[in-house]
């Protein structure tokens, strides 16, 4: 059976890849913010897997608590960034009626 930590890690990497693709290819600003959150989730998944693997390698029961603390902090930071970004997108849309950056207009 595949090692669960490895599974988590690989899934995380796949999510990161998916999100990065979206972040770079999408023009709609709201979608880009969502893509940012997808990448963030992927990274946190990998982080959790790293903590689990680290604990197993050291032979301690349960997971290394540090990554969990860091993940929670990271989620809060990402939330703040998302809130600001959405606020800016709304203000920008109100001021210009656009959903994209000027250079991305087609």
């Amino acid at each position: 059976m595949i090692d669960p930590a490895l599974l988590y890690g690989l899934t995380g990497a796949a999510v990161v890849g998916l999100g990065l693709y979206g972040f770079l290819s999408l023009r709609h600003l709201l979608r880009r913010v969502l893509a940012f959150n997808v990448v963030g989730s992927g990274i946190f998944l990998m982080f959790g897997a790293a903590g689990y693997r680290g604990a197993v390698a050291e032979g301690t029961a349960g997971a290394d608590p540090v990554p969990q603390a860091l993940i929670i902090t990271g989620i809060v930071v990402a939330l703040a960034a998302t809130a600001l970004a959405v606020g800016l997108i709304l203000a920008h849309a109100r001021a210009t009626g656009r959903r994209t950056l000027p250079e991305d207009d087609t």
Binding site: F36, L70, A81, A85
Partner: peptide, 23 residues
Amino acid sequence: LRYMVFALMGSLLYLLGAVLLYA
């Protein structure tokens, strides 16, 4: 907004690197 897009990109790269280092 453009600043934000670049900065978010930079944050993700940084965070990814940090995770690898921690692992």
